[in-house]
Simulated scan of single mutants.
Amino acid sequence: MYLPLADDIGSAFDYAVNALAKRSTGGDIEPFTISHTQWVTIYWIEGIIVLYLFTWNLYIARSVLFPLKLCAVACHEGCHALLGLLTGAKIYSIILDPNQGGSTRMEGGWAFASLPAGYIGSTLIGAALIFASFDLKASKIAAVPLLVHLLLVMFWARHSRYTMLFVSIPMGLIFILYIVAHGIFLRFLLAALGVMNGPCEYAPCYVETFC
């Protein structure tokens, strides 16, 4: 039976094992080259960066980018909540607001770890998405933990319809692009979301902790 995700992960592991085996035995390894697909991805990322710079606060364009901005904020807040949960905190809620900010309300845990987790975690998510966008299979694999992360954010934000709405928009786009045309367009969306996780680090987000 064909399982796309399992097969993709298996192929990635097989490639890594074969490459390590060749290196350990002194076998020939293909020299580093950039394929046409990877060049297209590089140009796309450069174009996205320029687009964000010139349209970040541009009338109408900023409304188009708004769901992507809140997706980055959701990743940010989700990282606060996840590390808080791992350090024993009780998560009360996650809320996103129209000013492209958000808040994570939690009690307990290690504040010194959960406070910077949003910035560090969302930056790592952005880097991982950009890295995965250079390959079709990698982008399909990366889309799964991203969807799980956003689902957790939706769970903690279940009392905020506004938050659930704007988190569900990028989730829907990811799901649609995953199944349409064998996911060939998914990597472009992941690259855009990955780049977005950089500038949105400066959104007015905060964490409320309670003793």
Rank of each mutant, 00 (worst) to 15 (best):
I184D: 05
A19L: 15
W44D: 01
I45D: 03
G101C: 06
A127E: 05
T123K: 01
G26W: 01
L3N: 14
A142L: 07
A138L: 13
L129F: 07
V195F: 07
Y52M: 11
Y178P: 08
V40K: 13
H36L: 13
L147D: 14
S11A: 11
R158G: 01
Y59H: 14
L177P: 02
R187Y: 02
W110C: 09
G198V: 14
G118M: 05
I91G: 03
Y178A: 10
E46A: 12
P116S: 03
E46L: 12
V40H: 11
G172S: 03
Y178T: 14
Q100V: 14
R158Y: 09
G78A: 07
S114N: 10
F54V: 15
T163P: 09
A6N: 01
I49E: 09
V144W: 02
I91N: 05
L82T: 11
I9R: 04
L83C: 09
Q100K: 12
G78C: 08
P98A: 09
L5T: 10
C211W: 15
Y59L: 15
L190K: 08
Y59I: 15
A157S: 12
C211N: 15
A142W: 10
G26P: 03
W39R: 15
K90Y: 00
R23V: 02
W56M: 04
D97Q: 11
L177E: 01
V180D: 05
H80R: 11
L83D: 06
S139H: 00
M106C: 08
P145F: 07
L5W: 08
G27V: 04
L193V: 11
E46W: 10
G78H: 06
I34S: 04
C205Y: 00
V50R: 01
I42S: 00
E208R: 10
P31K: 13
P31A: 05
V144S: 06
N18A: 15
G26E: 01
C79W: 08
I120N: 01
M1F: 10
H159G: 12
E77I: 08
R161H: 02
V207S: 06
A16S: 11
F32C: 08
G78S: 03
S24C: 13
G198Q: 03
P145Q: 02
L173N: 06
L193F: 10
G47Y: 02
L51F: 15
A6Y: 11
Y15I: 13
Y206V: 06
Y43H: 01
C211H: 15
Y15G: 12
A89I: 05
E208Y: 12
V144K: 11
C71Q: 12
I9H: 06
A21P: 07
I9E: 00
L146Y: 04
E46K: 02
Y92F: 08
I95M: 13
E107M: 12
G109E: 08
F210E: 12
V40I: 14
T87S: 02
